[in-house]
């Protein structure tokens, strides 16, 4: 499986990273090199093997469903590139 330029363009778009044509040409072969490497896994027989999403078996704890945090909007917004009152400001999305 090899990624052509259009696939790289689509992946960059899915990842929300703007890329010029020259960048697509640069990253394409690098990504193909990595994909070639990870495809070694197809040699491994994994029939009847359960996937392992997390390495250590820690039972998830339950706690009371109640608010335990919050109430400091100024801290939450402290690092916003642009904020107004208690809100983040983004470019206009509705015409």
């Amino acid at each position: 499986m090899s990624l052509d330029k259009e696939t790289v363009r689509k992946v960059a778009s899915l990842a929300h990273i703007k890329m010029t044509d020259e960048e697509l040409d640069k990253y394409g072969p690098q990504l193909n090199n990595i994909v070639g490497f990870i495809e070694q896994l197809s040699e491994v027989d994994t029939d009847n093997v359960e996937p392992l999403p997390s390495p250590v078996d820690i039972p998830l704890k339950l706690r009371k469903d109640e608010v335990t945090d919050g109430g400091y909007p100024e801290d939450v917004l402290a690092n916003a590139p642009e904020a107004l009152e208690s809100f983040y400001v983004v470019p206009k999305v509705i015409e």
Partner: peptide, 23 residues
């Protein structure tokens, strides 16, 4: 981009689930 690719529709089982089984 590699992560986005291996999680994208049509490739999830071939790459991501496979890797979790090998894990």
């Amino acid at each position: 981009m590699i992560g986005t690719y291996v999680l994208s529709a049509g490739y999830y089982d071939a790459y991501y689930m496979k890797a979790q089984k090998v894990r």
